[in-house]
Simulated assay, not measured.
Amino acid sequence: MRRESLRRFWYHFGRNPLSLLGLSVVTLVVVGALGAPWIAPYPEHAGRFVNFAEAGQPPSLHHLLGTDTFGRDLFSRILFGYRISLALGVVVLGIAVPLGVTLGLWAGYIGGGIATWIMRLSDVFVAIPPLVLAMAVLGVAEPSLTNAMMALTLMWWPWYTRMIYNQVRSLRLEGYVVAAQIIGASATHIMFREILPNTLPNILTKAALDMGFVILIGASLSFLGLGVQPPTPDLGTMVAEGARYLPDLWWLAVFPGLAILFVVLGFNLLADGLRDALGEG
C-alpha cells in the first residue's frame, strides 16, 4: 500500500515541470553545500584567508565568480555559505515544527485552560512581523549563528501551532477519531496515530516553503549585521559587504544575491509541487 501511495505521489509530482525544477535546484544546492570541501576550487578561502594580490578580480576562468576585496574566491565562499543557510533552516525547522505541531495537537484536541494560554501566546508571536521579532531578540544578544537560530525558532513555532490547531478542531469529529474514542484509545494515541498522519501533507508543504523563508530571513539578519559574523562565509553578509563597492565591483553583491534567490526559488517550487502532489495523492 505504501509503495502504491509513493508511486501515485511521484506520478502527480512528476507531471509538473516546475516541481521537478524545484527538486533539481534544491538537490543541486544540497549537494553543493555538503560537498563544498571537495567541490569548491579554493576551500581554504572559506576561512581566514587573505591574498591582496588577487583582490577584486572580476569573473574569469581562474575565479568563476570573481574574488572579493581580500582576494577570496567568491564561488567557493558561496558554496560554504549554502552550508550555513541550510544548517540554519534545518535546525530552526527541526525544533519549531515538532514543538509547534505538538502544542497544536494538544490545544486542538485536549483543550482547557492550558490550550487557551498556548493559543493566546501564539497569537502574540504571530502578530509581530517575523523579521522585526528576530531583530528584537538579536538586539539584546550577541550576533552569532547560534543566537540567530534561537531567534528564528522562537518566532517560527506559533505558525505551526495555529495551523495544526485549526486542523485538529475540524478533524476531531471525523468518524475514525470517534471510533478510536469509542474503543478506548488514549488521547496520545488519537493525537499522534489518528490525527497527525492526516495533517502531514500540510506540514510537509509548509516546511518546504518555510525552508526558503528561514534562509531568506537568516540572510536578512546577516545583511543587517545581526547574524553570522565574518570571516564565516554567509550569503547575507557577502551581499552587505559587496553593496559597499557597487557598481565598480558589482559581482560581490550580485552573485551572492542570486545565490539566495536561487535557493529560495527552489524551495518555493518544491513546496508547490508537494502541495499539488499530496493534495491529489
Rank of each mutant, 00 (worst) to 15 (best):
G113D: 05
L278G: 06
S19H: 02
N51D: 15
V178T: 11
K206P: 00
Y165F: 15
V177T: 01
L121W: 07
L105Q: 04
G236F: 12
L99V: 15
I195N: 02
P58R: 02
Y109A: 01
V214F: 08
A185K: 08
G266T: 09
G242H: 05
L274I: 15
L216C: 04
S122F: 03
R8S: 14
T116N: 14
Y165S: 01
G273V: 05
I182T: 09
R2T: 14
L93M: 12
L226H: 12
W251V: 03
Y165Q: 06
V30Q: 00
T199Y: 06
Y42C: 01
L258P: 07
V91D: 03
R83N: 04
A134V: 14
D234T: 08
L86A: 03
I215T: 11
L99N: 03
A33R: 01
P17R: 06
L61M: 14
R15M: 06
G273Q: 10
N16I: 03
I118V: 15
G236I: 13
S24H: 00
L246V: 12
A240P: 04
G56L: 13
G32M: 07
G266N: 13
L261E: 04
A55C: 08
A240F: 12
L265G: 07
F213R: 15
T161R: 00
G56I: 03
V92C: 10
S76I: 09
A46M: 08
A46V: 02
L200F: 13
L64E: 00
V140G: 02
L79P: 04
L21S: 10
R77Y: 07
L65A: 05
N198D: 04
A40S: 07
V126I: 15
F223T: 10
